[in-house]
Each structure stands twice: as structure tokens, then as C-alpha cells.
Design a protein around this nucleic acid. Structure first.
Lengths: 215, 215
DNA sequence: GGCGTTATTGGTCGCATGAACAATTGCTTA
DNA sequence: TAAGCAATTGTTCATGCGACCAATAACGCC
């Protein structure tokens, strides 16, 4: 009657088991927070013993850092594919609108929480700190690349794509800072901040990046 | 030779001891993080036994929440005195410049960390959540009041002071989100964000709120 | 098909946390 | 000055954490 149905061991290839552990930890960090990534919790999630997780990650913090990197890398690829320009559906402007739609949707809430979580926790955990910095610069560079592309194609103008990317991310992170607290009470004035900043930074007329403007 | 020089008990008035505990916890939260506010840590700081802290705060989370509220209330009063307009040193514009100078100085770093800390931790702690929401709205209202004053005195114009206050705080919190991570790598493009947002929201010509412009 | 590598188990250790409680002692009040 | 209130101490308990390690069993290789 116990929950442990099978005492049979399942032996997997190291690489497979390892990525399984990271994936589980990433999901855990994304839904419940990075503090919940403990040896025991991850082991429970996978139906294995804590010692096994310890075997692949002798230092627990390494798993936390890698889980964060895994989750944010996946999200960034979904937000702004790195092979930008390959299949231009609506061009760069369409890509910007898609970015705005995704980052303002409810599906992005967990990511907002994860970033907030990681930026705080990085204060105490050097390995996580390293990954957060890496990902922050990665996200920034990806946006910069998109701006570069738009400037080259003549979709808009921008004197300093890097600075623009930095400031667009300030808007994104500023609006998502309240995800756990008073976001609902201040939603209305905040709603269009990212879009407005984008339009300003890229010299676009107001409303160009509104969702409806694409049709 | 032990650190416990005196075994003599010091009995203080409850109100005094209580505020002493809160003050110590607030300092601790501000310098080392809210997670460091533990019964034992605070007791050590004050040279008393953990049970005493427990006596005043039977539920530890209450102390954390109150410490946060204490620290942020003090900071807000230093940033934007609630008796605004009483002694107009340079008027509202001077007050805005002072706000910008203080929030961009290094002395504000601990406050940035505290807000980041609290906004994340509020996810798990209902009592802290309540205080963070309260303080967020309090900071917002204080800025709104200052805008109201400036509009009345004709220093600038603003169609929706509340919305402007919300967006100014988005800029403040957006720029301070990286305080623990990659702030240094992206300092240049970020430096003038809050000032620029303020000037835009208040219909001021660019540069009006620059530090030098006051002399 | 036996054998050795190693993935996996199960248990232990030390540490820090919040909470609870009886005993003690300083202070105030009658 | 005696008595009582309550501020303060000292200790205990249960919980969850990371880290460590010996024993075990599944799988691939010869």
C-alpha cells in the first residue's frame, strides 16, 4: 500500500539521468522557486534517492545554477529565436510584437518570478551569480542583435543598439518586479511601458508596436 | 575569557525592548538580507537569549515583516519627507533632483537589495507580502503627492499623477533590479533612465532635472 | 555467460532553523 | 519591606538541509 510500488532499480545512461535531474530542477525552480531545489525534493520528483542527485551534483548549488541557466535559456529561445531572420514572419516588427505579446502574457509570470528569485539569491550563491550575469548579458545581446537586424533592414533607426537593448530590459524587469506583490493594483499605468520604451528607443511612432497594428 | 562578559540580566521596558529588537532586525535585513533575521541572530546582535526575541515575536515572520516596514518607512521619509512643501529648498524641482541624487547614490544600494529581497520573499511569507504591498503603494502615493504639488505650483504639468508615479517607480525598480548581478556591466546606458522618465512624465525639457541644472 | 564497472540505494552525521516551556530574577507596587 | 508580576534565561524538541559513504545491483564488455 505504500507509494513505493517498485523497488526495482532503473539504471540510465549518465548523460540522460543528468539532464533528467536538471530538467526536473528547472521545472521546480520555475514553478516553486529556486529554494525548493533540494536534493530530497528533486529526488522525490524523479522517484529516486537523494544520494543519486548528490552523485551527479556533489555540490547542490551547482544544480541550482544549472537549472536556472537551463530554464532561462529555453525561455529566451522561445522569445527570440537565435536564428533570427531565417523565417521572417512579418519581419523584425512582427518579431518585436511577438516579444511584447509573450512577455506581457500570463505564461511569462513564472519567468518573471524566476528572474526575481535568481537576482536575489545570486547575492548569496556565487555559482548562481555567475549564471545570472551570464544570462542577463545573453538576453541583452539577443535583443541587441534583433535591433541590429531591424536597423540594417531599415525597419527603424537606433544610434546605440546595445544601450537601447539595456533600457528595454530595464522596462521589462521594472514592470515584472511586482509580480509577487502589488502588480494587480498598478497594472493599468504599467501595461504599455515596455512597448512605449521600445518605440521610443527605435524611433517608431507611438502605437506601431501595438498588437492590432500588425493585421 | 568568553564573550559573555556579564550574566547579569538587563530588564527593559517592553516597548523599548521591542523597538530595540525591530531596529536590530531592520539593520540586519538591510545589510545582510531578510533571511538572516533569525531568532538566534537577532538575539546575538542584542546580547540576549533567543527565547526573548521569541517572547516579543512568537511567530518569527512577524519580526521580518515589521523589520522590512521599519527600514523602508525610514528610507522613504529620508527620500521624500511627508511634510513636503513645508520648507521649500529649491521648490519641487529641487526635491526631485534630491530624490534622483539619493536613489542613484551608493547609499541606496542596500535599499535596492532590500526591495529585491522582500519582493521575492513575499512569495512565500504572507505577512511580509502584506507589508511589501503596503510599502509599494505608500512609496507610490508619496511620489504622486509630490507631483500633485508640482502641478499646483505650476512647476510642470501632468495629466495623470498616479500613473506617472507608478511609471517613475518602474524606472527606479527596473534600474535597481541588477544591483546584485550585472549592474556594473550595464551602468552607462542605465544611468539616466530615471531622470529621463521623470522629465518625460512631467513634460519637462530634457536635462531640467540634471544635477548641475540646479545651481 | 561470468565479470567488473558504476549507477543507485540506504543510512548517518552535523548543523541551523522555529517553536515551546519551565525556571529564574529584576522591577514595581501595595 | 514583602509580594507578585513579567521580562529574561536555558533547554529541549522536531524538522529540513547538505554532505558523506559503504553496500548493492544493473548493465556492458570480454
Amino acid at each position: 500500500m505504500t507509494s513505493r510500488a517498485t523497488v526495482k532499480r532503473v539504471r540510465k545512461a549518465p548523460a540522460e539521468r543528468r539532464s533528467e535531474i536538471v530538467a526536473s530542477a528547472a521545472t521546480l525552480g520555475l514553478t516553486e522557486g529556486l529554494e525548493c531545489i533540494t536534493l530530497r525534493r528533486v529526488a522525490d520528483e524523479l522517484g529516486v534517492r537523494p544520494g543519486l542527485v548528490s552523485h551527479y551534483f556533489p555540490v547542490a548549488e551547482e544544480l541550482v545554477a544549472e537549472a536556472f541557466a537551463d530554464a532561462t535559456t529555453d525561455e529566451l529561445d522561445g522569445l527570440l529565436p537565435s536564428d533570427a531572420g531565417a523565417h521572417d514572419d512579418g519581419g523584425v516588427l512582427g518579431m518585436l510584437r511577438r516579444f511584447l505579446a509573450l512577455t506581457s502574457g500570463e505564461e511569462f509570470d513564472d519567468i518573471s518570478r524566476l528572474w526575481l528569485n535568481a537576482r536575489h539569491l545570486a547575492r548569496y550563491r556565487p555559482l548562481l551569480h555567475e549564471q545570472v550575469v551570464r544570462q542577463e548579458l545573453l538576453w541583452c545581446r539577443r535583443i541587441e542583435a534583433m535591433i541590429d537586424q531591424g536597423v540594417r533592414s531599415g525597419a527603424f533607426t537606433c544610434a546605440d543598439p546595445w544601450a537601447a537593448a539595456v533600457r528595454i530590459l530595464v522596462a521589462v524587469d521594472g514592470t515584472s518586479a511586482y509580480i509577487n506583490t502589488s502588480l494587480q493594483q498598478r497594472l493599468a499605468p504599467i501595461r504599455d511601458v515596455v512597448r512605449t520604451v521600445m518605440e521610443t528607443e527605435l524611433g517608431l511612432t507611438a502605437g506601431t508596436l501595438s498588437p492590432a497594428a500588425g493585421d
